[in-house]
Design a protein around this nucleic acid. Structure first.
Lengths: 316, 316
DNA sequence: TTGTATGCGTTATCAT
DNA sequence: ATGATAACGCATACAA
């Protein structure tokens, strides 16, 4: 990759003149301009972004940190986010991380590179971040909160998500609704469960919350509670559960109804007929993009809506 | 984020002295060294990588380009690759892309940033790359080939994969083995199908290859051929198929056996009991890491091995 | 119309 | 033991 100085030498002009040609600035003859642009194209000249980053003390890269595992949802979101950011001249670079140490290392690297902002999925709830990091690098957290007040946490209204799910199933006649969720503590997870409980109580139904750990445990839970519907924390879990039920010859939705959450492109392909709740990815990524540009969380993401499929039935 | 010059001012020394302290170089008194290191830590000083990139004309970043959709397998691989590269002081940055134009834009950006290397999943087979790109940026392609001879394409021995799958199913008594695959042209995909056909012919069985497009088409194919086993191109497809069969009350594996390919962490979690073939991710990422360091493909990846699950049965 | 000089942050090589 | 300086590539202000 040629530099602007080498390009200047090739053209027999000064590097200042090359710059005038490349940036369409006045004060240059049409002849030299054409010659320079021609040679630039032929050699595939591209300015070195590192130089801009030094001079501006800031890069046009937005860094994202997502979990190395369980990333289907985040990858679907990041793919959209990338397009949205690109429309504003920002690049999105992703890093998958395995835990707290990995996470903090990546964040330090982002800060050292003076990235424009960081969009992160913290590996645990209430993670403290070194203050020198948050002072120089704007950080937006998804799903889980960081302990710094200066780091906003963006989630959909997950309490509402839980309520909507319950109401949808209850409207179809379900009363024994099991909520299957994860052990991991995270605002986005806990809120959804809280919304479930709240709405169940409001309808005078008994909340049954179960942490998914293994097929065996799940089957025991089924035996104990005999739910007519299962509200899974997300589509990932719903797909796993569907397979468990298939193995044990339990009919869906005749014997039991399954409702997931996410309905992102990947899950739609994996299981097109899954009844689910659609995560408002477009409005979500729009909010994130706005934040990276203004550092302010303007429009809150829209609520999730139920996408009826074939895994939930009405009780007669 | 403080700079080394600001740090020097804070310490009341020259920036050269700061450098000696930061790099543990001789020619500095213990007292000043401690003071500098102390203040550096307090302010969270980190050298700006952009400067190194300018001076070295090369960065320690390895860029990866993966499809925005259908990325489960690649994300599982990239997560491992990241760890492997990190052990050699290289960072891995991912970019999801949507098609050819997006792909080439990302590659240009990588070249402009003088990245150490690019690991890419081309959006189509035999994609031509601008020569100025491949001259300055070492590119390794996965799954699909690029048209440049200077761009190596790494895949497992997928012909062998297809053969192994057929032999495994045939040994269990299956004769009507349907191969379900994708329309997309890619060396990794076509080789697997070629291996399937080859082994079927060798065993004097009739190859039945079907491109998956929709549930309806799939059901028609089933009706037409009545296979006893389906060899799916990958676990993603296998999971989709499992759900189709569940919907139509076809018992697995009593009525039909399903074999997938990949068995990476995500697919293992999604469907733990799926019979599959394990992609040798560790040896694969090792080979990639070697290549980024030496620009030579040394050890070829190991062959895939069958992981028996509960979705394939022996015909009595 | 064109050439030259300065600064960005870091490192390495000088000189003091 | 410490300070000064050149170099990297690019943008910009200024000189010719």
């Amino acid at each position: 990759m040629i530099s602007s100085i080498e390009l200047a030498k090739l053209c027999g002009v000064s590097q200042g003149t090359v710059d005038r040609a490349l940036h369409n600035r006045p004060g240059i003859s049409e002849t030299t301009r054409r010659k320079i642009l021609d040679l630039a194209k032929r050699h595939g000249y591209l300015p070195n972004p590192a130089v801009r980053e030094i001079m501006d003390r800031s890069s046009n890269i937005v860094g994202a940190i997502i979990p190395a595992l369980n990333n289907i949802f985040f990858m679907d979101m990041m793919s959209l986010l990338k397009d949205s950011l690109e429309a504003h001249g920002k690049m999105l670079f992703l890093t998958p991380v395995h835990g707290k140490a990995d996470f903090l290392t990546a964040l330090e690297e982002f800060a050292a590179r003076k990235m424009h902002a960081a969009i992160v999925v913290p590996p645990e709830e209430n993670l403290p971040l070194p203050s020198h990091l948050t002072q120089s690098l704007p950080v937006l957290s998804l799903l889980s909160r960081c302990s710094e007040r200066s780091v906003p946490c963006l989630t959909a209204d997950e309490i509402q998500t839980g309520k909507t799910a319950v109401q949808y199933l209850a409207d179809l006649g379900h009363q024994k609704i099991l909520h299957l969720t994860y052990r991991r503590k995270a605002k986005g997870i806990e809120d959804r469960t809280a919304g479930y409980k709240s709405q169940m109580n409001k309808l005078h139904l008994k909340p049954i919350v179960s942490i998914y750990s293994s097929e065996n445990d799940f089957l025991k839970t089924l035996d104990r509670h005999h739910p007519t519907a299962i509200f899974c924390h997300n589509d990932w879990l719903a797909i796993t559960i569907l397979r468990h039920l298939q193995t044990h010859n339990i009919q869906i939705p005749q014997d039991i109804s399954i409702l997931g959450v996410d309905h992102t492109p990947t899950f739609q392909t994996l299981c097109p007929d899954l009844s689910s709740m659609e995560y408002p990815l477009a409005s979500f990524t729009h909010t994130i993009t706005d934040w990276t540009l203004t550092k302010k969380l303007t429009s809150p993401p829209e609520p999730l809506t139920v996408i009826p499929g074939k895994t939930v039935r009405a009780l007669s």
